[in-house]
Design a protein around this nucleic acid. Structure first.
Lengths: 190, 190
DNA sequence: GTCTATACAGTGATAGAC
DNA sequence: GTCTATCACTGTATAGAC
């Protein structure tokens, strides 16, 4: 029997979500999260570089997924088709049963500029990942960056629609639709 | 004669730049900046909401400029033409005599993730400003957001080139060139 | 209306022990 | 990998000086 319970990281994540819901983000301290998880404050900071990061748990995995899907797209796929495949793949994180949790999390982020900042950094990382993967496919600049940016914008628009209580479409359908709209708009721009 | 020296805000800004150059960003405290400026720590936080913000002094003015130029573009200008005019207008902040200061500032930002975050937030604000101004011209979504994003990407690419010591072009020329490249790439995407 | 003084909660880092 | 303990610094709040 170990001297401490395993899965400290996940317990901290869960405890944080609970406390944010109960007390709000600001009123919740890192020490309080650790306590709820049965750990010490310093243990929190060992697992998460700062308090904000606990809300972006799992983002790195999503990044790896994006890179893999873009890289593994058919050789004759256009840049936008490869990006579209990547966006659809992110749907694994946005099943119907996760809607409520995702919505609550996003409300917290939207209400706190410091969390908006962190979110933008994560989005930039995702966009950069897609651009790099596209260049790995031989797509030249500035096409790679542009396609990745279009993907980022499409993902953001799909995400917003998915969170809209009035919407009923699956996430994959929304990303496809958003990217289509943007491709048409791009073609009409110049 | 006033009981205190005027321009506290600018003095703080100048002192901060100096100390960042001398000691690095991390080793410089808000109290140290205030002391160098002949002020108290609490006065620093009266002028800047946090330590990072001292490096983004004047960003709001640039935002207002973007909005005005997009709004005042000729009635028959396309969305990208309006955006192009806005990007060229930002050139006032990037004259040759400011190159060294801008370069030093950017080196500090690039070396500190927390400053990268703040930079992304400012960029998003600029992009949002342009998109809103375009909608004000009657440009529908998602064209307005797309054009603004293209502008953001063009600005970023022009900025990077302008900071490249090997480059000699004026900022306005670089923005025009970057936006042209992106328009071509967008047309070729789908 | 701008600055100062002081006290305070919380973050995040660090060092040493189990 | 975790704990305790300590610490500098950030950022807020308050009350007051000029």
């Amino acid at each position: 029997m170990p001297r401490w319970e395993p899965n400290a990281l996940e317990r901290l994540h869960t405890a944080a979500i609970e406390l944010f819901a109960e007390q709000g983000y600001d009123a919740t301290t890192a020490a309080g999260i650790a306590e709820r998880a049965g750990l010490a404050k310093s243990t929190f900071f060992r697992h998460f570089p700062d308090k904000r990061e606990v809300l972006f748990f799992g983002q790195e995995a999503l990044n790896g997924l994006l890179a893999a899907v873009v890289a593994d797209a058919p050789a004759d796929a256009t840049p936008l088709e490869a990006v579209g495949a990547a966006l659809e793949a992110t749907g694994v994180a946005f099943g119907p049963q996760r809607w409520e949790a995702v919505r609550r999390r996003q409300e917290i982020i939207d209400a706190h500029p410091e969390l908006r900042e962190r979110e933008l950094l994560k989005r930039e990382a995702m966009t950069g990942t897609m651009a790099t993967a596209l260049r790995g496919r031989g797509v030249p600049e500035p096409v790679a960056s542009l396609a990745a940016q279009l993907g980022d914008l499409a993902l953001a628009r799909a995400y917003t629609r998915w969170l809209d209580p009035a919407s009923t479409s699956a996430f994959g359908e929304l990303t496809r639709q958003a990217l289509d709209e943007l491709r048409s708009a791009a073609a009409a721009l110049g």
